Lab assay of single mutants.
Amino acid sequence: MTGIVKWFNADKGFGFITPDDGSKDVFVHFSAIQNDGYKSLDEGQKVSFTIESGAKGPAAGNVTSL
């Protein structure tokens, strides 16, 4: 699925993605970002991701920028 990064705190390594389908915002951890180098996201960035079952509920996985 796709969405827009609502916010991401690079110091803490997590944030939230707002899915394009209008569903509830999804937690994203830096370890789910699939790019080389520094793993961070920018507010407003368009991303593709999967929904994984995290310890505290749904979380984004396999996050790639579009």
Rank of each mutant, 00 (worst) to 15 (best):
E43P: 15
N9D: 13
P58C: 08
N9W: 12
G13A: 03
P58N: 10
S48G: 09
S65P: 14
P19C: 07
I33Y: 04
N35L: 11
N9F: 08
K39R: 12
G54T: 14
V63H: 01
Q34C: 13
A60R: 01
F49K: 00
Q34T: 13
F8P: 01
K24T: 12
A10S: 14
I51E: 03
Q34P: 04
G54F: 09
D21L: 06
E43H: 15
G57A: 06
T2F: 07
N9M: 06
K39H: 09
K12T: 06
I4F: 11
P19G: 03
A32L: 03
K46G: 07
K6R: 10
M1C: 11
P58T: 11
K46I: 12
S40K: 15
W7K: 04
P19E: 02
D25C: 06
P58H: 10
P19A: 04
T64R: 13
G44R: 05
T50H: 10
G37N: 10
S48L: 12
E43K: 13
N62A: 09
D25S: 05
E43F: 14
K12M: 12
G15L: 02
K46F: 09
G22Q: 07
D25Q: 07
G57R: 10
V63G: 01
F27E: 02
Q45V: 09
P19N: 04
S48R: 11
G3L: 01
G57L: 07
G54K: 06
G54R: 06
G57V: 05
K39F: 09
A59R: 15
G22I: 03
T64P: 01
S40G: 12
G54P: 04
S40F: 12
G3A: 02
E52S: 10
K6C: 06
F8N: 01
W7E: 02
S65G: 11
G61E: 10
D42I: 15
K6V: 06
V26G: 00
A32E: 07
A59M: 15
N62M: 14
I17C: 01
K6P: 01
L66S: 10
K46Q: 11
K46Y: 10
I4Y: 12
K12W: 12
L41R: 01
H29T: 04
M1K: 11
S48T: 12
G61R: 13
T18W: 07
S23T: 13
K6Q: 05
G57H: 08
G13C: 04
G37E: 09
G44L: 04
A10L: 09
K39L: 09
W7S: 04
S31I: 05
S40W: 13
E43D: 10
V5W: 02
T2R: 07
S23E: 07
I51K: 08
K6E: 02
I33M: 05
F30I: 09
A10Q: 15
K56G: 10
